[in-house]
Design a protein around this nucleic acid. Structure first.
Lengths: 251, 251
DNA sequence: TCACCCTATTGGTATTACCATTCACGATGC
DNA sequence: GCATCGTGAATGGTAATACCAATAGGGTGA
Protein backbone atom coordinates (compact mmCIF):
# COMPACT_ATOMS: atom_id res chain seq x y z
CA UNK A 1 0.00 0.00 0.00
CA UNK A 2 0.89 3.63 -0.31
CA UNK A 3 2.62 4.27 -3.58
CA UNK A 4 3.62 7.76 -2.50
CA UNK A 5 7.19 8.17 -1.54
CA UNK A 6 7.01 11.03 0.96
CA UNK A 7 9.38 13.79 0.05
CA UNK A 8 10.70 14.10 3.59
CA UNK A 9 9.90 15.89 6.82
CA UNK A 10 9.54 19.56 7.45
CA UNK A 11 12.17 20.09 10.08
CA UNK A 12 11.36 23.73 10.62
CA UNK A 13 7.69 24.55 10.51
CA UNK A 14 8.14 28.31 10.45
CA UNK A 15 5.06 30.36 11.28
CA UNK A 16 3.34 27.19 12.36
CA UNK A 17 0.75 28.04 14.97
CA UNK A 18 0.63 24.37 15.89
CA UNK A 19 2.64 24.61 19.08
CA UNK A 20 2.04 20.87 19.52
CA UNK A 21 5.21 18.91 19.79
CA UNK A 22 5.85 16.27 17.18
CA UNK A 23 5.32 13.31 19.48
CA UNK A 24 2.08 14.84 20.74
CA UNK A 25 0.76 14.89 17.20
CA UNK A 26 1.32 11.16 17.06
CA UNK A 27 -0.37 10.63 20.41
CA UNK A 28 -3.34 12.60 19.14
CA UNK A 29 -3.38 10.53 15.94
CA UNK A 30 -3.69 7.36 17.95
CA UNK A 31 -6.02 8.71 20.62
CA UNK A 32 -8.41 10.07 18.07
CA UNK A 33 -8.69 6.68 16.42
CA UNK A 34 -9.09 4.89 19.73
CA UNK A 35 -11.82 7.24 20.92
CA UNK A 36 -13.61 6.96 17.58
CA UNK A 37 -13.53 3.20 17.72
CA UNK A 38 -11.39 2.85 14.62
CA UNK A 39 -8.72 1.25 16.75
CA UNK A 40 -9.87 -1.43 19.18
CA UNK A 41 -8.08 -3.85 21.46
CA UNK A 42 -6.07 -6.12 19.23
CA UNK A 43 -5.63 -3.66 16.39
CA UNK A 44 -2.14 -3.29 14.96
CA UNK A 45 -0.71 0.15 14.39
CA UNK A 46 1.22 0.99 11.23
CA UNK A 47 4.92 0.27 11.49
CA UNK A 48 6.86 3.06 13.14
CA UNK A 49 8.45 4.08 9.88
CA UNK A 50 5.10 4.20 8.13
CA UNK A 51 3.39 6.05 10.95
CA UNK A 52 6.17 8.63 10.91
CA UNK A 53 5.50 9.28 7.22
CA UNK A 54 1.72 9.46 7.70
CA UNK A 55 1.80 11.92 10.57
CA UNK A 56 4.70 13.82 9.06
CA UNK A 57 7.18 13.47 11.90
CA UNK A 58 10.39 11.59 12.50
CA UNK A 59 10.63 8.07 13.79
CA UNK A 60 12.00 9.11 17.19
CA UNK A 61 8.91 11.25 17.59
CA UNK A 62 6.72 8.26 16.88
CA UNK A 63 8.63 6.19 19.38
CA UNK A 64 8.27 8.81 22.09
CA UNK A 65 4.54 8.84 21.46
CA UNK A 66 4.39 5.06 21.67
CA UNK A 67 6.14 5.20 25.04
CA UNK A 68 3.56 7.69 26.26
CA UNK A 69 0.66 5.46 25.32
CA UNK A 70 2.48 2.38 26.50
CA UNK A 71 2.81 3.98 29.91
CA UNK A 72 -0.98 4.28 30.00
CA UNK A 73 -1.42 0.63 29.16
CA UNK A 74 -2.91 1.39 25.77
CA UNK A 75 -0.15 0.11 23.49
CA UNK A 76 2.24 -2.78 23.45
CA UNK A 77 5.29 -3.21 21.21
CA UNK A 78 7.06 -6.34 20.11
CA UNK A 79 9.67 -6.86 17.45
CA UNK A 80 9.52 -9.21 14.54
CA UNK A 81 7.77 -9.55 11.23
CA UNK A 82 4.30 -10.81 10.43
CA UNK A 83 1.26 -10.92 12.64
CA UNK A 84 3.25 -11.24 15.84
CA UNK A 85 5.47 -8.21 15.67
CA UNK A 86 4.45 -4.61 15.60
CA UNK A 87 2.77 -2.18 17.95
CA UNK A 88 -0.70 -3.27 18.97
CA UNK A 89 -3.55 -1.82 20.99
CA UNK A 90 -3.97 -3.51 24.35
CA UNK A 91 -6.27 -2.62 27.21
CA UNK A 92 -4.29 -3.38 30.30
CA UNK A 93 -4.53 -0.46 32.70
CA UNK A 94 -3.58 -2.46 35.77
CA UNK A 95 0.18 -2.06 35.50
CA UNK A 96 -0.03 1.58 34.48
CA UNK A 97 -2.38 2.44 37.31
CA UNK A 98 -0.20 0.72 39.86
CA UNK A 99 2.96 2.46 38.73
CA UNK A 100 1.25 5.83 38.62
CA UNK A 101 -0.17 5.53 42.11
CA UNK A 102 3.03 4.18 43.58
CA UNK A 103 5.03 7.11 42.30
CA UNK A 104 2.55 9.69 43.44
CA UNK A 105 2.22 8.17 46.87
CA UNK A 106 6.01 8.35 47.14
CA UNK A 107 5.92 11.96 45.99
CA UNK A 108 3.16 12.67 48.50
CA UNK A 109 0.94 13.96 45.73
CA UNK A 110 -1.54 11.64 47.37
CA UNK A 111 -1.27 11.74 51.17
CA UNK A 112 -1.53 8.38 52.90
CA UNK A 113 -4.64 9.43 54.77
CA UNK A 114 -6.41 10.34 51.55
CA UNK A 115 -5.40 7.08 49.92
CA UNK A 116 -6.60 5.11 52.91
CA UNK A 117 -9.91 6.90 52.89
CA UNK A 118 -10.46 6.03 49.25
CA UNK A 119 -9.31 2.51 49.91
CA UNK A 120 -11.99 2.14 52.55
CA UNK A 121 -14.86 3.05 50.27
CA UNK A 122 -13.49 0.97 47.41
CA UNK A 123 -13.04 -2.10 49.54
CA UNK A 124 -16.43 -1.61 51.12
CA UNK A 125 -17.86 -1.75 47.63
CA UNK A 126 -15.76 -4.74 46.62
CA UNK A 127 -16.55 -6.63 49.77
CA UNK A 128 -20.24 -6.00 49.50
CA UNK A 129 -20.32 -7.13 45.88
CA UNK A 130 -18.09 -10.11 46.54
CA UNK A 131 -20.35 -11.22 49.36
CA UNK A 132 -23.22 -11.34 46.93
CA UNK A 133 -21.42 -12.74 43.90
CA UNK A 134 -18.48 -14.89 44.95
CA UNK A 135 -18.71 -18.51 43.85
CA UNK A 136 -17.34 -21.39 45.89
CA UNK A 137 -14.05 -21.37 44.07
CA UNK A 138 -13.48 -17.70 44.79
CA UNK A 139 -14.46 -18.21 48.42
CA UNK A 140 -11.94 -21.03 48.63
CA UNK A 141 -9.28 -18.71 47.27
CA UNK A 142 -9.98 -16.17 49.98
CA UNK A 143 -10.00 -18.79 52.69
CA UNK A 144 -6.69 -20.17 51.47
CA UNK A 145 -4.99 -16.83 51.95
CA UNK A 146 -6.48 -16.31 55.39
CA UNK A 147 -5.38 -19.73 56.53
CA UNK A 148 -1.91 -19.26 55.11
CA UNK A 149 -1.62 -16.22 57.34
CA UNK A 150 -2.10 -18.44 60.41
CA UNK A 151 1.37 -19.88 59.90
CA UNK A 152 3.68 -18.50 62.60
CA UNK A 153 6.73 -19.19 60.45
CA UNK A 154 5.96 -16.51 57.90
CA UNK A 155 8.17 -13.50 57.48
CA UNK A 156 6.59 -10.08 57.57
CA UNK A 157 6.84 -9.83 53.80
CA UNK A 158 5.18 -13.20 53.31
CA UNK A 159 2.45 -12.39 55.80
CA UNK A 160 1.78 -9.08 54.11
CA UNK A 161 1.80 -10.81 50.74
CA UNK A 162 -1.02 -13.12 51.75
CA UNK A 163 -2.81 -10.18 53.30
CA UNK A 164 -2.65 -8.39 49.97
CA UNK A 165 -3.76 -11.47 48.05
CA UNK A 166 -6.76 -11.84 50.33
CA UNK A 167 -7.92 -8.33 49.61
CA UNK A 168 -7.22 -8.77 45.91
CA UNK A 169 -9.23 -11.99 45.89
CA UNK A 170 -12.17 -10.11 47.34
CA UNK A 171 -11.82 -7.37 44.75
CA UNK A 172 -11.68 -9.87 41.91
CA UNK A 173 -14.70 -11.73 43.17
CA UNK A 174 -16.60 -8.46 43.16
CA UNK A 175 -16.38 -8.44 39.40
CA UNK A 176 -15.83 -4.71 39.04
CA UNK A 177 -12.74 -4.20 36.94
CA UNK A 178 -12.12 -0.58 37.85
CA UNK A 179 -12.58 -1.26 41.56
CA UNK A 180 -10.29 -4.27 41.32
CA UNK A 181 -7.53 -2.43 39.49
CA UNK A 182 -7.75 0.54 41.83
CA UNK A 183 -7.68 -1.70 44.88
CA UNK A 184 -4.63 -3.55 43.63
CA UNK A 185 -2.93 -0.31 42.68
CA UNK A 186 -3.59 1.30 46.03
CA UNK A 187 -2.48 -1.77 47.90
CA UNK A 188 0.71 -2.03 45.86
CA UNK A 189 1.42 1.67 46.12
CA UNK A 190 1.34 1.42 49.90
CA UNK A 191 3.32 -1.80 50.05
CA UNK A 192 6.71 -0.34 50.94
CA UNK A 193 5.39 2.17 53.49
CA UNK A 194 3.30 -0.60 55.07
CA UNK A 195 6.27 -2.93 55.32
CA UNK A 196 8.33 -0.19 56.89
CA UNK A 197 5.54 0.39 59.35
CA UNK A 198 5.29 -3.28 60.25
CA UNK A 199 9.03 -3.53 60.77
CA UNK A 200 8.92 -0.51 63.03
CA UNK A 201 6.39 -2.16 65.34
CA UNK A 202 7.69 -3.24 68.70
CA UNK A 203 4.84 -5.71 69.21
CA UNK A 204 4.56 -7.41 65.85
CA UNK A 205 3.20 -10.62 67.29
CA UNK A 206 0.28 -8.85 68.93
CA UNK A 207 -0.54 -6.96 65.74
CA UNK A 208 -0.25 -10.17 63.77
CA UNK A 209 -2.86 -11.71 66.04
CA UNK A 210 -5.18 -8.78 65.57
CA UNK A 211 -4.82 -8.96 61.80
CA UNK A 212 -5.60 -12.67 61.82
CA UNK A 213 -8.70 -12.15 63.91
CA UNK A 214 -9.92 -9.37 61.67
CA UNK A 215 -9.34 -11.35 58.50
CA UNK A 216 -11.16 -14.37 59.85
CA UNK A 217 -14.08 -12.18 60.83
CA UNK A 218 -14.30 -10.63 57.38
CA UNK A 219 -14.09 -14.02 55.73
CA UNK A 220 -16.83 -15.41 57.94
CA UNK A 221 -19.16 -12.57 57.09
CA UNK A 222 -18.50 -13.06 53.37
CA UNK A 223 -19.03 -16.80 53.58
CA UNK A 224 -22.20 -16.18 55.53
CA UNK A 225 -23.36 -13.80 52.79
CA UNK A 226 -23.77 -10.98 55.26
CA UNK A 227 -22.82 -8.10 52.98
CA UNK A 228 -23.32 -5.14 55.29
CA UNK A 229 -21.48 -6.81 58.13
CA UNK A 230 -18.61 -7.75 55.85
CA UNK A 231 -18.31 -4.20 54.57
CA UNK A 232 -18.32 -2.79 58.09
CA UNK A 233 -15.69 -5.27 59.21
CA UNK A 234 -13.46 -4.45 56.25
CA UNK A 235 -13.72 -0.76 56.95
CA UNK A 236 -12.92 -1.28 60.58
CA UNK A 237 -10.02 -3.52 59.65
CA UNK A 238 -8.47 -1.03 57.25
CA UNK A 239 -8.88 1.89 59.61
CA UNK A 240 -7.44 -0.08 62.51
CA UNK A 241 -4.47 -1.29 60.50
CA UNK A 242 -3.76 2.26 59.41
CA UNK A 243 -4.09 3.58 62.94
CA UNK A 244 -1.54 1.06 64.20
CA UNK A 245 1.13 2.68 62.05
CA UNK A 246 0.98 6.11 63.56
CA UNK A 247 4.13 7.36 61.94
CA UNK A 248 2.49 6.91 58.55
CA UNK A 249 -0.18 9.49 59.20
CA UNK A 250 1.74 12.58 58.26
CA UNK A 251 3.02 11.27 54.96
CA UNK B 1 32.36 20.63 33.50
CA UNK B 2 32.76 17.81 31.12
CA UNK B 3 36.39 17.58 30.41
CA UNK B 4 35.81 14.02 29.29
CA UNK B 5 34.80 13.51 25.75
CA UNK B 6 32.72 10.36 26.13
CA UNK B 7 34.28 7.52 24.26
CA UNK B 8 30.89 6.34 23.08
CA UNK B 9 28.23 3.89 24.17
CA UNK B 10 28.30 0.15 23.96
CA UNK B 11 25.88 -0.39 21.14
CA UNK B 12 25.91 -4.15 21.36
CA UNK B 13 25.88 -5.56 24.85
CA UNK B 14 26.52 -9.11 23.81
CA UNK B 15 25.77 -11.75 26.39
CA UNK B 16 24.18 -9.13 28.56
CA UNK B 17 21.65 -10.83 30.80
CA UNK B 18 20.06 -7.43 31.28
CA UNK B 19 16.99 -8.04 29.19
CA UNK B 20 15.79 -4.61 30.22
CA UNK B 21 15.43 -2.22 27.37
CA UNK B 22 17.60 0.86 27.43
CA UNK B 23 14.80 3.29 28.16
CA UNK B 24 13.57 1.04 30.95
CA UNK B 25 16.92 1.33 32.63
CA UNK B 26 16.48 5.07 32.67
CA UNK B 27 12.95 4.77 34.05
CA UNK B 28 14.30 2.56 36.80
CA UNK B 29 17.07 5.03 37.50
CA UNK B 30 14.54 7.77 38.07
CA UNK B 31 11.95 5.64 39.87
CA UNK B 32 14.48 4.30 42.29
CA UNK B 33 15.52 7.81 43.24
CA UNK B 34 11.93 8.96 43.55
CA UNK B 35 10.93 6.05 45.76
CA UNK B 36 14.02 6.51 47.93
CA UNK B 37 13.27 10.16 48.40
CA UNK B 38 16.42 11.34 46.69
CA UNK B 39 14.26 13.02 44.08
CA UNK B 40 11.34 15.05 45.35
CA UNK B 41 8.85 17.37 43.74
CA UNK B 42 10.83 20.27 42.38
CA UNK B 43 14.07 18.37 41.86
CA UNK B 44 15.81 18.84 38.53
CA UNK B 45 17.09 15.82 36.66
CA UNK B 46 20.47 15.83 34.96
CA UNK B 47 20.39 17.13 31.42
CA UNK B 48 19.38 14.51 28.90
CA UNK B 49 22.90 14.30 27.51
CA UNK B 50 24.39 13.86 30.97
CA UNK B 51 21.80 11.32 32.06
CA UNK B 52 22.49 9.32 28.94
CA UNK B 53 26.15 9.12 29.87
CA UNK B 54 25.41 8.24 33.51
CA UNK B 55 23.04 5.40 32.75
CA UNK B 56 25.06 4.32 29.76
CA UNK B 57 22.41 4.62 27.09
CA UNK B 58 21.76 6.93 24.18
CA UNK B 59 19.89 10.18 24.35
CA UNK B 60 16.83 8.90 22.48
CA UNK B 61 16.57 6.21 25.14
CA UNK B 62 16.58 8.86 27.83
CA UNK B 63 13.94 10.81 25.99
CA UNK B 64 11.69 7.78 25.66
CA UNK B 65 12.00 7.21 29.39
CA UNK B 66 11.16 10.82 30.11
CA UNK B 67 8.01 10.47 28.01
CA UNK B 68 7.01 7.40 30.01
CA UNK B 69 7.33 9.23 33.30
CA UNK B 70 5.80 12.36 31.87
CA UNK B 71 2.75 10.31 30.92
CA UNK B 72 2.40 9.36 34.58
CA UNK B 73 2.57 12.97 35.68
CA UNK B 74 5.92 12.48 37.39
CA UNK B 75 8.17 14.56 35.14
CA UNK B 76 7.91 17.79 33.25
CA UNK B 77 10.28 19.07 30.58
CA UNK B 78 10.97 22.60 29.48
CA UNK B 79 13.68 24.01 27.30
CA UNK B 80 16.13 26.71 28.15
CA UNK B 81 19.21 27.18 30.27
CA UNK B 82 19.57 27.88 33.95
CA UNK B 83 17.14 27.13 36.71
CA UNK B 84 14.06 27.27 34.55
CA UNK B 85 14.91 24.80 31.83
CA UNK B 86 15.48 21.13 32.20
CA UNK B 87 13.46 18.13 33.22
CA UNK B 88 11.99 18.44 36.69
CA UNK B 89 10.01 16.24 39.02
CA UNK B 90 6.40 17.29 39.32
CA UNK B 91 3.54 15.61 41.13
CA UNK B 92 0.54 16.23 38.95
CA UNK B 93 -1.34 12.99 38.49
CA UNK B 94 -4.60 14.66 37.49
CA UNK B 95 -3.95 14.91 33.77
CA UNK B 96 -2.38 11.48 33.57
CA UNK B 97 -5.21 9.82 35.43
CA UNK B 98 -7.82 11.47 33.26
CA UNK B 99 -6.15 10.47 30.02
CA UNK B 100 -5.63 6.92 31.23
CA UNK B 101 -9.23 6.45 32.27
CA UNK B 102 -10.63 8.06 29.17
CA UNK B 103 -8.73 5.73 26.89
CA UNK B 104 -9.63 2.64 28.84
CA UNK B 105 -13.28 3.54 28.99
CA UNK B 106 -13.19 3.97 25.23
CA UNK B 107 -11.47 0.60 24.90
CA UNK B 108 -14.06 -0.92 27.22
CA UNK B 109 -11.31 -2.11 29.54
CA UNK B 110 -13.53 -0.50 32.11
CA UNK B 111 -17.23 -1.11 31.43
CA UNK B 112 -19.49 1.87 31.99
CA UNK B 113 -21.45 0.08 34.69
CA UNK B 114 -18.28 -0.61 36.66
CA UNK B 115 -17.13 2.96 36.30
CA UNK B 116 -20.48 4.27 37.44
CA UNK B 117 -20.46 1.99 40.44
CA UNK B 118 -17.07 3.30 41.50
CA UNK B 119 -18.17 6.81 40.81
CA UNK B 120 -21.07 6.36 43.21
CA UNK B 121 -18.93 5.35 46.16
CA UNK B 122 -16.31 8.02 45.43
CA UNK B 123 -18.88 10.79 45.18
CA UNK B 124 -20.66 9.54 48.27
CA UNK B 125 -17.35 9.96 50.07
CA UNK B 126 -16.65 13.35 48.53
CA UNK B 127 -20.13 14.62 49.25
CA UNK B 128 -20.06 13.48 52.82
CA UNK B 129 -16.69 15.08 53.45
CA UNK B 130 -17.63 18.25 51.60
CA UNK B 131 -20.77 18.58 53.68
CA UNK B 132 -18.64 18.60 56.79
CA UNK B 133 -15.74 20.70 55.55
CA UNK B 134 -16.88 23.11 52.85
CA UNK B 135 -16.40 26.78 53.68
CA UNK B 136 -18.75 29.50 52.54
CA UNK B 137 -16.67 30.26 49.47
CA UNK B 138 -16.76 26.67 48.32
CA UNK B 139 -20.48 26.49 48.97
CA UNK B 140 -20.94 29.61 46.87
CA UNK B 141 -19.00 27.95 44.06
CA UNK B 142 -21.32 24.96 44.11
CA UNK B 143 -24.41 27.13 44.20
CA UNK B 144 -23.16 29.18 41.28
CA UNK B 145 -22.94 26.10 39.07
CA UNK B 146 -26.37 24.85 40.10
CA UNK B 147 -27.95 28.21 39.39
CA UNK B 148 -26.20 28.50 36.05
CA UNK B 149 -27.90 25.24 35.11
CA UNK B 150 -31.30 26.88 35.56
CA UNK B 151 -30.77 28.92 32.41
CA UNK B 152 -32.99 27.54 29.66
CA UNK B 153 -30.76 28.98 26.98
CA UNK B 154 -27.87 26.62 27.63
CA UNK B 155 -26.79 24.08 25.08
CA UNK B 156 -26.46 20.47 26.15
CA UNK B 157 -22.68 20.84 26.25
CA UNK B 158 -22.88 23.94 28.41
CA UNK B 159 -25.43 22.37 30.73
CA UNK B 160 -23.28 19.27 31.09
CA UNK B 161 -20.24 21.46 31.67
CA UNK B 162 -21.84 23.13 34.68
CA UNK B 163 -23.04 19.74 35.86
CA UNK B 164 -19.46 18.50 35.81
CA UNK B 165 -18.16 21.61 37.53
CA UNK B 166 -20.71 21.19 40.30
CA UNK B 167 -19.54 17.68 41.01
CA UNK B 168 -15.91 18.75 40.78
CA UNK B 169 -16.57 21.58 43.21
CA UNK B 170 -17.94 19.07 45.69
CA UNK B 171 -14.92 16.83 45.24
CA UNK B 172 -12.51 19.69 45.76
CA UNK B 173 -14.30 20.86 48.87
CA UNK B 174 -13.92 17.37 50.26
CA UNK B 175 -10.18 17.91 50.47
CA UNK B 176 -9.22 14.39 49.45
CA UNK B 177 -6.80 14.69 46.57
CA UNK B 178 -7.07 11.11 45.35
CA UNK B 179 -10.85 11.17 45.49
CA UNK B 180 -10.91 14.51 43.71
CA UNK B 181 -8.60 13.43 40.92
CA UNK B 182 -10.43 10.16 40.45
CA UNK B 183 -13.79 11.91 40.39
CA UNK B 184 -12.60 14.39 37.79
CA UNK B 185 -11.00 11.63 35.75
CA UNK B 186 -14.10 9.47 35.81
CA UNK B 187 -16.33 12.35 34.97
CA UNK B 188 -14.10 13.41 32.07
CA UNK B 189 -13.71 9.87 30.81
CA UNK B 190 -17.47 9.56 30.51
CA UNK B 191 -17.99 12.98 29.00
CA UNK B 192 -18.34 11.97 25.37
CA UNK B 193 -20.54 8.93 26.04
CA UNK B 194 -22.73 11.06 28.32
CA UNK B 195 -23.10 13.77 25.71
CA UNK B 196 -24.04 11.18 23.10
CA UNK B 197 -26.59 9.82 25.52
CA UNK B 198 -28.08 13.23 26.20
CA UNK B 199 -28.35 13.99 22.49
CA UNK B 200 -30.09 10.68 21.93
CA UNK B 201 -32.83 11.55 24.42
CA UNK B 202 -36.22 12.34 22.94
CA UNK B 203 -37.33 14.24 26.03
CA UNK B 204 -34.34 16.36 26.90
CA UNK B 205 -36.38 19.09 28.53
CA UNK B 206 -37.94 16.64 30.96
CA UNK B 207 -34.58 15.14 31.86
CA UNK B 208 -33.12 18.61 32.23
CA UNK B 209 -35.82 19.38 34.77
CA UNK B 210 -35.08 16.21 36.69
CA UNK B 211 -31.37 17.01 36.77
CA UNK B 212 -32.06 20.51 38.05
CA UNK B 213 -34.27 19.20 40.81
CA UNK B 214 -31.73 16.63 41.87
CA UNK B 215 -28.88 19.12 41.90
CA UNK B 216 -30.83 21.59 43.96
CA UNK B 217 -31.72 18.85 46.43
CA UNK B 218 -28.07 17.80 46.80
CA UNK B 219 -26.97 21.39 47.24
CA UNK B 220 -29.60 22.00 49.90
CA UNK B 221 -28.49 18.99 51.87
CA UNK B 222 -24.86 20.11 51.70
CA UNK B 223 -25.69 23.66 52.71
CA UNK B 224 -27.79 22.28 55.55
CA UNK B 225 -24.82 20.16 56.65
CA UNK B 226 -26.82 16.97 56.39
CA UNK B 227 -24.05 14.64 55.29
CA UNK B 228 -25.91 11.34 55.11
CA UNK B 229 -28.80 12.83 53.24
CA UNK B 230 -26.45 14.55 50.78
CA UNK B 231 -24.60 11.29 50.13
CA UNK B 232 -27.85 9.41 49.56
CA UNK B 233 -29.12 12.08 47.19
CA UNK B 234 -25.90 12.05 45.21
CA UNK B 235 -26.00 8.30 44.87
CA UNK B 236 -29.61 8.40 43.78
CA UNK B 237 -28.80 11.17 41.33
CA UNK B 238 -25.91 9.35 39.72
CA UNK B 239 -27.81 6.08 39.46
CA UNK B 240 -30.86 7.81 38.00
CA UNK B 241 -28.81 9.73 35.45
CA UNK B 242 -27.11 6.53 34.37
CA UNK B 243 -30.42 4.68 34.15
CA UNK B 244 -31.83 7.35 31.87
CA UNK B 245 -29.25 6.52 29.23
CA UNK B 246 -30.18 2.92 28.73
CA UNK B 247 -28.10 2.42 25.62
CA UNK B 248 -24.99 3.11 27.68
CA UNK B 249 -25.46 0.07 29.86
CA UNK B 250 -23.87 -2.49 27.63
CA UNK B 251 -20.74 -0.52 26.90
C1' DT C 1 6.97 -34.01 1.80
C1' DC C 2 9.59 -32.12 5.25
C1' DA C 3 13.28 -29.70 7.34
C1' DC C 4 16.14 -25.96 6.93
C1' DC C 5 17.83 -21.54 5.73
C1' DC C 6 17.30 -17.04 4.08
C1' DT C 7 15.20 -12.78 3.49
C1' DA C 8 12.00 -9.16 4.42
C1' DT C 9 9.72 -6.77 8.09
C1' DT C 10 9.66 -4.62 12.50
C1' DG C 11 10.94 -2.72 16.87
C1' DG C 12 15.44 -1.36 19.58
C1' DT C 13 19.44 1.52 19.83
C1' DA C 14 23.08 4.62 18.88
C1' DT C 15 25.07 8.67 16.59
C1' DT C 16 25.14 12.99 14.65
C1' DA C 17 23.59 17.40 13.57
C1' DC C 18 20.73 21.00 13.93
C1' DC C 19 16.95 24.21 15.76
C1' DA C 20 14.51 26.95 19.41
C1' DT C 21 14.23 28.71 23.87
C1' DT C 22 15.86 30.54 28.04
C1' DC C 23 18.98 32.31 31.46
C1' DA C 24 23.23 34.15 33.18
C1' DC C 25 26.93 36.94 32.69
C1' DG C 26 29.46 40.47 30.87
C1' DA C 27 29.90 44.52 28.07
C1' DT C 28 28.21 48.92 27.39
C1' DG C 29 26.16 53.25 28.18
C1' DC C 30 24.33 56.46 31.39
C1' DG D 1 28.21 52.78 40.35
C1' DC D 2 24.15 51.16 38.34
C1' DA D 3 20.95 49.85 35.00
C1' DT D 4 20.33 47.99 30.41
C1' DC D 5 21.17 45.40 26.56
C1' DG D 6 23.18 41.76 24.01
C1' DT D 7 25.48 37.55 23.38
C1' DG D 8 26.77 32.99 24.35
C1' DA D 9 26.11 28.73 26.62
C1' DA D 10 23.04 25.22 28.27
C1' DT D 11 18.97 22.51 27.38
C1' DG D 12 15.08 20.26 25.40
C1' DG D 13 12.98 19.32 20.51
C1' DT D 14 13.51 17.17 16.11
C1' DA D 15 15.30 14.91 12.16
C1' DA D 16 18.19 11.77 9.56
C1' DT D 17 20.80 7.74 9.23
C1' DA D 18 22.68 3.40 10.16
C1' DC D 19 22.79 -0.70 12.19
C1' DC D 20 21.27 -4.64 15.48
C1' DA D 21 17.95 -8.27 16.98
C1' DA D 22 14.02 -10.89 16.66
C1' DT D 23 10.40 -12.99 14.13
C1' DA D 24 7.53 -14.90 10.43
C1' DG D 25 6.95 -16.77 6.24
C1' DG D 26 8.42 -18.30 1.98
C1' DG D 27 11.69 -20.54 -0.82
C1' DT D 28 15.00 -24.25 -1.47
C1' DG D 29 17.22 -28.45 -1.13
C1' DA D 30 17.41 -33.17 0.59
Amino acid sequence: MCGMKAAGYAQVMSSEVTSKKAWEQVVDWVEQRVLSGELVVGSTLPAERDLALRVGVSRPAVREAVRTLQASGVLRSSVGAGGSGGTTVTGVPHQALTKLLRMHVALASFPATDVTQVRVVLERLSTSLATQRADSEQLAGMRAQVELMDDDGLSIEEFNGHDTQFHVAIAEAAGNRLATDLTVAIRESMRDPILEGLYALDDWKRVRGLLRTEHHAVLSAIEGRRADEAADLVEEHIRAAFARMSWLHDR
